[in-house]
Amino acid sequence: MSGGFDFSAWAEARRARVEAALEAWVPADAAAGLGEAMRYAVLDGGKRLRPLLVLASAEALGANPEDDAALRAACAVELIHAYSLVHDDMPCMDNDVLRRGKPTVHVRYGEAGALLAGDALQALAFELLTPEASPGTPTQTPPEAVTPPRLAHAPATQARLCGLLARAAGHAGMAGGQAIDLASVGRTLDAATLRDMHRLKTGALLTASVLLGAAATGLASVTPAWQALSAFGEAVGLAFQIVDDVLDVTADAATLGKTAGKDAAANKPTFVTLLGLEGARAEAAQLHRHALDALSELQRACPQAQLSALAALADAMVRREY
């Protein structure tokens, strides 16, 4: 499915585009140092897997790599991810001091500064999805590395993208999963409950990333192609979390860029505590196969789809070492 595809070159080009857009769109001049804290939280770090999933999904369905709606969706989902990390790291949540190889935002800017930075990043995500622009006149002109939007995308598309992202981030998605996670400390969860928790906490935003790319192209949600992409997103989303649990046990902080062993220290239920190390790895491998099966279904539903980038991303997410 991805034979002959240069994933490294593809990913490097898309990351550069996303980085340039984030550099342009995350304001440096927000009041009272807020902009500095926001930029510290989101720039110069991270794998950018969620933006890459957005762009890979959009391009699989025929979008131009420079499509404005897909780029805005890619940046928006990264802002939501960044805000969630800022809040998750705070003392009232996971109380972590290291993220992406540097001090967490609350360590650098204080708890109030981190709280506001997270709030502002969340709001900015939806601002990016709803640009107010006349044809050919962007509200914010990104640098030369980012092609200015030709048209502000249609209000119906804006609303659909906002709805997908909001549902993935809210009580039925990431925030709900985090609430379950906090309530589960010190408890023994069965496999089904643990999977449900992580489908919300981690998987919902990864699935939404895939679907945001599809929605940016106008793909209807009632189509077999949409269902296949949803199944792909759910499989890689849960696999990603299982690999995270494995790495929390097997990797060190220097490799991870965040505190290693923190789940065990916090007495949190994980796939490793439930299934054992090899059992967790086997579960991730099975989900990887499910993801590739979903791409085969997508190819049947949409023969013209270009799936190399999505397949390569699934490989990278499951086989990663940090």
Rank of each mutant, 00 (worst) to 15 (best):
L219G: 02
Q306A: 15
A73C: 03
G176Q: 07
A266T: 06
L128V: 07
R99L: 13
R72F: 04
Q241Y: 07
P269D: 13
R99E: 14
L307V: 13
L34R: 08
V222Y: 01
A175G: 06
A82N: 14
W226P: 06
E59N: 06
Q241W: 03
L61R: 00
R150V: 09
V318M: 08
V272L: 05
G163W: 01
D181W: 02
L22C: 06
G203N: 10
F7P: 08
A166G: 10
L206T: 13
S2G: 14
A264V: 14
L229C: 00
A215E: 04
G257A: 06
V185I: 11
H288A: 05
L205G: 00
A73G: 00
R17C: 03
D315F: 13
G237F: 02
A192E: 15
A114S: 14
D94Y: 01
H288Q: 09
A183K: 00
L61Y: 03
P224S: 00
L61H: 02
A228W: 03
L61S: 03
A314T: 11
L189P: 05
L85Y: 10
R160P: 01
P131M: 11
T137H: 11
P135S: 11
R289L: 04
S184H: 09
V210H: 06
E283T: 07
A152S: 13
S221A: 02
H198L: 04
Y322K: 15
G261K: 04
A191T: 08
D244G: 02
A24P: 12
F271N: 02
A82K: 05
E111T: 15
R319W: 08
G233H: 04
A265L: 09
V54G: 00
P27L: 04
E66L: 08
A301S: 08
G46I: 09
L128H: 03
A82P: 15
R108K: 15
G173K: 00
A231V: 04
V272R: 00
R99S: 14
A20E: 02
L165T: 06
S84G: 11
V146T: 00
R167H: 13
L151S: 10
D181V: 00
Y40A: 12
D245W: 00
E132N: 12
E321P: 05
R320Q: 12
K258C: 01
A168Y: 06
A154H: 11
D263F: 07
D94N: 08
A168P: 07
G110M: 04
D196N: 14
R160K: 15
A13R: 15
A265F: 09
V222M: 05
T130M: 12
L85P: 14
T104P: 09
V77G: 12
T270P: 05
R99V: 15
H288E: 05
G261H: 01
E59A: 01
P142L: 08
L43V: 14
G4V: 04
T255C: 10
M90Q: 14
A253W: 02
I80K: 11
L53Q: 06
T255P: 04
G233C: 05
A301V: 01
A183W: 01
R199F: 08
R100K: 12
L313F: 15
